[in-house]
Amino acid sequence: MNDTNIKLNVMLVDDSILILRILEDILKELGHSVVAKAKNGKEAIELYKQHNPDMLLLDITMPGEFNGIEVCRQIKSNYPDGVIIMCTSHGQESMVRDAIKAGAKSYILKPVNKLTVTKHIEQIFSKPKA
């Protein structure tokens, strides 16, 4: 269970089933719900429209016509308040920069672990103390 008592509806997008499984395990352990999972950009855009999640964890390199940056750009143009966190690896800093400029809120470096996910969720969703 997370320390902030926030329960989020999260959507995951990654072309690797294993990464999706690892992320889902971590989020469930933190008390969040995984409302949808997509393996490519096109599927991600469709599922986002259906579920309108609180947060989207989006892989930056993906197969198909839309990579992570393009998915981020499209979602942000229709849902400006949507929270998108990019999942990325070392050496992709230039792509992360493009993603942040496209509207992503932050980024998580792989390998993803419980501590990193918790830290990002707290930073983004915790209300500032009065």
Binding site: S16, I19, I22, S89, G91, K110, P111
Partner: peptide, 28 residues
């Protein structure tokens, strides 16, 4: 190849996925 170099694979084997990882560091 890039996908196979992610965390789980780096954890599985030592030098081979690291070479793959180095190659995948180039722009997609």
């Amino acid at each position: 190849i890039h996908t196979h170099t992610k965390e789980h694979l780096i954890n599985l084997a030592l030098s081979i996925p690291l070479i793959a990882y180095m190659i995948s560091r180039k722009s997609y």
